[in-house]
Design a protein around this nucleic acid. Structure first.
Length: 289
DNA sequence: ACAATTTGACCGCC
DNA sequence: GGCGGTCAAATTGT
């Protein structure tokens, strides 16, 4: 971040200091002027010399004080412009290589878990920056949960959210809102088997339209978990394979339609939104409206 | 004063 | 060496 000096508003302490220095300099200037006026008329009388000496001493004192103030001035962090000073080398850290990850596509990146943003980065070949969040309880409860939010489309807003590791900070009774894989564990899960979903889709959508077919093929991949592609990847693939111009809006609306078949908004507290899960090893990935 | 966010630098992996 | 993930100082908000 480049911060120009002009953008910095001085802190009250600095403003006070500046005022003192200016006052000192102005005083010195005024006395020098007096001395200048006095000099041509300076006689050899003792009083004239005394006045001149006094003025000189005062000017000297005033300027010395001002210079001293300047010299002793410690720049406050606020007023300091960020300069590329050498930083101590940071400790080595390991990048997570094989953590439990889940990818979700949602219309909002907000959930009811307390996240703290720790970074943002422009990703290669990506229109929007990726934001990095860690659980607010990383240190006090040693929670390892992390999420990455990548905006895929602006309007309608579509986010690809990757959850890395699940929350271990839920001792307060709050359910872990991180969407869990729904296949085997969840008594909450009421998903249809993948083939039933595909049949329902076929019944409800016109399969003759080529672009719709393409979209459904893509959607089936996501829903059934036959591959772990995200909506974005699927969209790209669909574009490449068929040259059809499936828009994000179309994908979204189709996903919504399909979601009606097995909407279950209470599955994931904190995810009262449209989302779609593409687990690494998903079997019964799902989404709802 | 403290917490949260921003942002450039650093670091490891490919 | 490029890229993406993380760190931490600086900045902003409450």
């Amino acid at each position: 971040m480049a911060v120009s000096a002009s953008e910095d508003a001085p802190s009250p302490a600095t403003a006070d200091l500046k005022e003192r220095i200016i006052r000192g300099l102005a005083q010195g200037k005024a006395m020098a002027k007096q001395l200048q006026v006095l000099l041509p008329h300076l006689g050899s009388s003792g009083s004239d010399v005394l006045v001149a000496r006094e003025l000189t001493a005062n000017i000297l004192g005033s300027f010395t004080a001002s210079l001293s103030e300047l010299g002793s001035h410690r720049v406050s962090p606020r007023d300091r412009t960020r300069s590329p000073k050498p930083r101590p080398r940071r400790g080595c850290y390991k990048r997570r290589k094989s953590s439990q990850t889940r990818t979700v596509v949602a219309s909002t990146a907000v959930d009811d878990v307390s996240w703290r943003k720790y970074g943002q980065k422009q990703i290669h070949n990506s229109k929007f920056p990726r934001s990095y969040y860690r659980c607010s309880h990383k240190y006090d409860r040693h929670c390892k949960a992390i999420k990455q939010v990548q905006m895929m489309e602006e309007s309608p807003p579509l986010y690809e959210i990757t959850y890395i590791d699940s929350h271990t900070c839920t001792s307060d009774g709050k359910a872990d809102p991180t969407p869990q894989q729904g296949s085997s564990s969840g008594p909450l899960m009421e998903t249809r088997p993948p083939h039933a979903l595909a049949e329902a889709e076929a019944d409800n959508l016109d399969m003759k339209e080529e672009n719709i077919t393409v979209t459904l093929d893509m959607k089936e991949d996501i829903i059934t978990g036959s591959s772990s592609v995200t909506a974005l990847q699927a969209k790209e693939e669909a574009k490449e394979d068929t040259e059809s111009d499936v828009t994000g809006m179309e994908i979204n609306s189709l996903l919504m339609e399909a979601g009606d078949f097995h909407a279950e908004s209470s599955l994931y507290p904190g995810f009262g939104m449209d989302f779609l899960v593409a687990d690494d090893d998903c079997v019964n990935s799902m989404f709802y409206c």
